[in-house]
Simulated scan of single mutants.
Amino acid sequence: MIPALRFEHYKLDPKAAGYSGSIVSLSDQAVTPRLGLIWRVSPLVQPYAQWSKGFRAPTPDQVNNGFSNPTQFYQSIGNPDLKAEHANSVEVGLRGKLAETLRWQLSAYDNRYKDFITQEVVRGTGRPTDPLVFQYVNLADARIKGVEARIVWDLMPGLNLNASVAKTRGHSTENGVETPLDSVQPLRGKVGARYETGPWSVETTWVHSSGKKPSDVSTVGWYTPKKYDVVDLGGSYRFDKTYSISTYVTNLFDKKYWRWSDVTGIAATSPVLDSYTAPGRAFQVTLRADF
């Protein structure tokens, strides 16, 4: 049994130098308890549960923000009335390991929020004459629940295989009516492999994302991207304790796809929809120095 108690306080006191708009100051505080339980039945299976209260203060840019991108037909505005977010969270799961070579975890969670902070499209369609306007707002009651699974397998010295999958659903409630949370991502899965020998290492990952269903979107008529699969490939070489070089090819097969987080609020009929696609095949080379 692992109990914990946390006290949090924040104060936002911005200065208006060089800015002609109005700004606001905020402060708040909260006590957030937490209780964790672990039953170590055996190394292979260890059930656990956790209950916690949460508190998240608005960030300065969420409250006092102003940004416009006329070439991409969107802008972001601040919300001086934004309040701190409070959460009541429960998580249960199983985890364990087998012979020090295989580690796994399965979990389910249910988070309920008061004054949930989320970025929403408050007006606009993303057209040149009607740009999107993004703003962080509070939702009086919200709920996010989901399941996650992950496994790591050290197949042999230097070779590591890993896989994970996560499915989340969320909605807000107002006057008894449930509305999907647009900030919730669709199901995502990942499979990766990494091999390391001496100063050399190579790795590859395959990422799958399900499509966004129209029923999981708050507004009818928004573009809902379809599922996609992306493969990345890379490697690195360490010269000594200080210097190393790495190179990666992202989106190896040059897949054309849209991420939900990039097209939230974009109309399905938008004439500039292609400008929101994720990057195609790209090459990256990085030289790193650790002192």
Rank of each mutant, 00 (worst) to 15 (best):
L139G: 01
Q119L: 07
A57Q: 09
D115V: 08
G189Y: 08
I151G: 08
G265Y: 00
L287I: 04
S20G: 02
A87S: 14
V165C: 11
V122W: 08
A57H: 07
E196T: 14
P214Y: 08
D141H: 07
K167S: 13
G280S: 05
V207D: 02
K15L: 10
D61W: 12
L159P: 02
P128M: 03
L37G: 02
T224G: 04
E203S: 14
S215C: 09
V165D: 04
V133N: 00
R288N: 12
P33D: 07
T269I: 10
I38R: 14
P131E: 07
I23E: 06
G78L: 12
S275G: 05
V249N: 01
L273Q: 09
T224K: 01
W39H: 10
F7W: 11
E148N: 12
I266K: 01
T219F: 03
Q62N: 12
R40F: 05
G234L: 12
L12V: 06
Y223C: 06
A267I: 00
Q119C: 05
I117Q: 14
A30E: 07
G235E: 05
K226Q: 12
S68L: 07
L252S: 07
L161A: 09
A193K: 05
D28E: 08
V24H: 00
W51S: 07
T101W: 15
A267C: 04
R123K: 15
T224E: 06
P60K: 03
P271I: 10
F239W: 12
S270N: 15
